[in-house]
Nucleic acid binder design. Structure first.
Lengths: 366, 366
DNA sequence: AATGCGAACTTAAACGTTTTCTTCTATATT
DNA sequence: AATATAGAAGAAAACGTTTAAGTTCGCATT
């Protein structure tokens, strides 16, 4: 059944103008709905819905006509109504924030998130941040927020995993993937910190170093992995690691690394190479070294972790472990979406993404 | 009216258990709705809605009871239903992406967005990215996407402002705020590039430099502002700027800056100070200088732009203009939300956020 | 001629809210 | 005692969809 108005283009135009006039409330344009399209096309709303969603029980011509009119009228589906009916939002919640509150500014996380976002969008999902505002009167917990928005799934990264609210969220029935932290019953994507640290230490060893210090980050799953891998690798290489070589400084904190580096340099037997919590911190360490009139890597070698992009532009180029943030993000998205779309078949799983040592020139051959 | 079950705690517990059992479908828990709460409390859904939203036409005791039961039942409001009814999503769309596709990875933008996000959350709004996926079959334009999600407002930053889809979005009736780009009829938050560049050049001048070169970024509104401010300031200071001192290299591109720096150094009368498109690029320039065996700032001075955090950890500390990303983001959020909440009163406006020169020690006194 | 069938379309209920009217009851005012 | 008033609650419609379950109707099959 073809709309009579449609045969002449101007006819349709006129009709639409009249329809538009009806749609004006005050001087504000109301959104056009499936109902309006149905009215113009002279069919039921069910038919419009089906035509627009490509169901097969609607005539080819009718379907084409409806699509055309919908387009001309500037029809936009209403995700809220769709969600209400179908219980699917095609929206993923993203929860993150870390001790240092660096949020989006956190280089490592920004890369992971960017990749996650791209992968999710590729599959037709949007992403929304789970509110981290804690001081608001109308405060919701993470779980409440996730439920309120009816996220199809949630990805958790970089958070303070001790936070009871995170626990509450993890214990819920929402599909969840975590990054760099293992919960029981939840799938996780982790950067292979064990292998990363092992490869890094091995590289430094091969460059001839035997006195290797490690300033590790604050206690966390990531730190644990790296630290135990450090010990294990040293053991395998039959390296002696005096307790004084192991120190702690916060992640991404140049000041802390600066201070700790000072302590290491004052030891009777100072190390010949220092490994830092991350590249950021490493720069703090370099500053401490230079402040004492020493040179990197001539007088002492250093290595970071993370492989933040900007570091490639500096001399010395940092030896570091480049984490595969791209894969971390896309694997997380793939896993989460598969969890959503095939709730039965998927079991919790741990996906380990290998990083890669970037040698740079901050570790001297000795 | 007090629920009889409520008097004994165990009684309520039992009742709730029965209700929960009813709510189980298969082995999947259905979300509890206002209706379920109403059923348990023995009141109408209208009363529950009113109690939960703090309307005054519901008894104090009833209200308290309803809230308690709702909480115990794990009731979570459904934003989709709420949106459908009220036409408000309390969700803001964020559109960004730049030529270099650095997305979230873009340091400047990440800081602005982080601040925007915090300010928005403070006011009770969530933020969702506007899909930038261009190669998908079920492709929506930016505008279609914004309409689909019914964002209350949209913030646009860092995008390719020539993109016709951006134009379509900007011409729509959705409340919009742009960052660092002025559209007619749209409110904008801009970093004060004119003043920033002026202050930077003035500082360099005061340090005694008279031969100042400027490697500017690719053509854009931002570049235009900075470049014209550069010329104007030089003119005011009666500095001669040979055409050969003005060069172009992409933003955030160390390679381009490296090459262009080379050209400047080979001039018969090379500059004594070079200004770069941004701090990133500046590091590329420094590399070029060092590659020639020259030293910064002893042999030649340099300055960047942006004030990216990490730069503070390097020697030499870059002279740069620190943009007030925090204020840029929060002003954008405030403006957008005011546009949403007071559609009548607000006129389009341009808010200029001043930056600040950070002197560092990359510009030598001569 | 009666039957069955598939294609094309419609009806109507449902999703979970908000909100405008009503209705009811108890108390205050004349 | 009659009436007005205010407080507390409920009924019902509406928001824009999807979808299961009809309803036509023309046509091929028996």
């Amino acid at each position: 059944m073809i709309c009579t108005y449609c045969s002449s283009a101007s006819g349709l135009g006129e009709l639409l103008n009249r329809v538009y006039a009806d749609l004006m409330v005050g001087d504000f344009a109301k959104m056009v709905s499936i109902k309006d399209v149905a009215g113009v096309c002279g069919v039921s709303i069910a038919t419009v819905s089906k035509a627009l969603n490509g169901h097969r029980d609607v005539g080819k011509e009718t379907s084409a006509h409806i699509r055309q009119v919908a387009k001309q009228m500037g029809y936009a589906p209403n995700s809220a109504a769709k969600t209400l009916k179908t219980n699917r939002t095609y929206n993923l919640g993203v929860l993150f924030s870390d001790e240092s509150q660096s949020g989006l500014t956190h280089d490592y996380f920004a890369h992971v998130l960017d990749s996650f976002k791209n992968a999710a969008e590729e599959r037709g999902y949007d992403i929304t941040f789970i509110n981290s505002c804690r001081n608001r009167s109308c405060r919701m917990s993470y779980l409440e927020h996730a439920r309120y928005r009816r996220f199809d799934g949630v990805v958790i990264a970089c958070v303070d995993f001790e936070d009871p609210e995170v626990g509450e969220l993890v214990r819920s029935d929402i599909p969840i993937v975590t990054i760099d932290h293992l919960f029981n019953n939840r799938s996780t994507i982790v950067s292979d910190n064990v292998k990363g640290m092992k490869d890094l230490v091995s590289y430094i060893y091969e460059m001839g170093h035997r006195k290797i210090a490690y300033i590790h980050g604050a206690d966390s799953a990531v730190t644990q992995s790296r630290l135990s891998s450090f010990y294990k690798t040293c053991e395998e290489l039959k390296l002696n690691v005096p307790a004084s070589y192991i120190r702690e400084a916060p992640y991404r904190n140049t000041q802390g690394a600066y201070t700790e580096t000072g302590h290491l340099l004052e030891l009777k037997k100072p190390p010949t190479c220092i490994i830092y919590p991350d590249d950021f911190a490493c720069f703090g360490g370099i500053a401490a070294i230079q402040a004492r009139g020493l040179k990197v890597p001539d007088d002492i070698s250093v290595a970071g972790y993370d492989g933040i992009g900007i570091a490639k532009n500096f001399e010395p180029k940092l030896a570091t472990v480049i984490q595969d943030t791209k894969r971390l993000g896309s694997e997380a998205a793939d896993k989460l979406i598969s969890l959503i779309e095939h709730p039965k078949t998927t079991i919790t799983e741990q996906i380990i993404v290998a990083g890669e040592v970037f040698q740079g020139n901050s570790v001297k051959q000795i």
